[in-house]
Write a protein that binds this DNA or RNA. Structure first.
Lengths: 198, 198
DNA sequence: TTAGTTTCCGGAGCGATGCTCCGTTTTGTC
DNA sequence: GACAAAACGGAGCATCGCTCCGGAAACTAA
């Protein structure tokens, strides 16, 4: 089990100088291109922007998922770390869960096509899916369990299902005034709260 | 306004015999291939299965959306027609809405990749999106309004948002025991019901 | 039937993209 | 400076969407 380098953190260590340099160049170029063309942008385009051959990108990031996770690693990390903090600072476990989901949604909707990629049935993104799960599922589970424990929400919902549902709701073209994923997610949380007194 | 042929119902009328024949052959082949490879299957594959040239498919169905809608037309129609029936037969408007959503979800999850296509940001499917909306949005609106009128659910939710949310929740690989869109949709409906007495 | 006309067909071909292979270049070391 | 290892770059192959046009097939008229 690779515990210190879960998904390509710093594989440049010990590599040749030009390799390390190129790795950073590619990451920067990819970040820029992702904003413009989404995470599905052609590798050629990223390579051109970085002034680098395609093979260089494939050498550093064998799959597209590796490149995407490397680009967003910091933000995913932040999101993961925010979980326990919120649990400590929020008024209730439910508030903590709610605010954490806000963070998660913020992250997803501002990354062009990222939510789409997460659930894509294409094989290119399975590693991305796996990375998100590895990193965020424990956090979500903790928040969910705490909320159940506190009696804020009904039991019976799994964190995996919740996260994937939220991810799915964030899929689609942006800037459609008729569709706001947050409203539906709020509804979902509403349904999760237990007025189940019958 | 084309009221009798909204999206390619029977454009074979008056065409040459071989054209009509090929149209049916292509539809049958497409239906088979969609089951196996999803609605994103290569046109070449469908053409090969139909024993037909690619141009023939493009001639009959200019966009992929046209082909998909033609294949599923009957089932979409059934779903649309079920709306008013359910409203008349169900115990309450909310039950009607709930059952109709069940039908809609059944339809989506049994069609490989259809839900994905509906929200795809690719241009190839915009017409499909439009057709679903044209046909099903009025039905959903009617059910939603009736449920609001009856006081079953809180007002403020638009049918478009609800339908798209449901469609989104149905996106993804099938047969994952950890993810069942129906559970989340049930939660969503739960949140829609108004315990909002505050 | 047959000739003529219109409609329709088929697949070669073009551009885009993912990914690989291999000759060349750069880097690090002695 | 020479040498080996590491990394590079882009040509090249495969796939797919979509079009174009020469030819075949179906209708019509005599």
């Amino acid at each position: 089990m690779a515990t210190e380098s879960p998904a390509g953190e710093s594989p440049s260590r010990g590599k040749r100088a030009d390799a390390q340099r190129n790795r950073q160049t590619v990451l920067a170029a990819a970040a820029e291109v992702f904003v413009i063309s989404g995470v599905d942008a052609p590798i050629r385009q990223i390579a051109a922007r970085a002034g680098v051959g395609m093979a260089t990108i494939y050498r550093h990031f064998p799959t597209r998922a590796d490149l995407v996770t490397a680009v967003y690693r910091h933000q995913i990390e932040e999101c993961a770390e925010a979980g326990p903090d919120l649990l400590a600072s929020a008024d209730s476990p439910f508030d903590a869960l709610s605010q954490w989901i806000d963070l998660f949604v913020d992250f997803l909707v501002t990354k062009h096509g990222l939510a789409d990629a997460l659930q894509s049935d294409s094989d290119r993104f399975t590693a991305l899916h796996a990375y998100f799960l590895d990193r965020l599922l424990p956090v979500c589970t903790q928040l969910l369990d705490a909320a159940v424990e506190a009696g804020d929400i009904r039991p019976g919902t799994q964190a995996y299902e919740l996260m994937r549902g939220i991810g799915n709701l964030c899929i689609g073209r942006d800037n459609d005034p008729r569709y706001n994923p947050r409203r539906l997610i709020a509804l979902l949380l509403q349904g999760l709260q237990r007025p189940q007194a019958s």
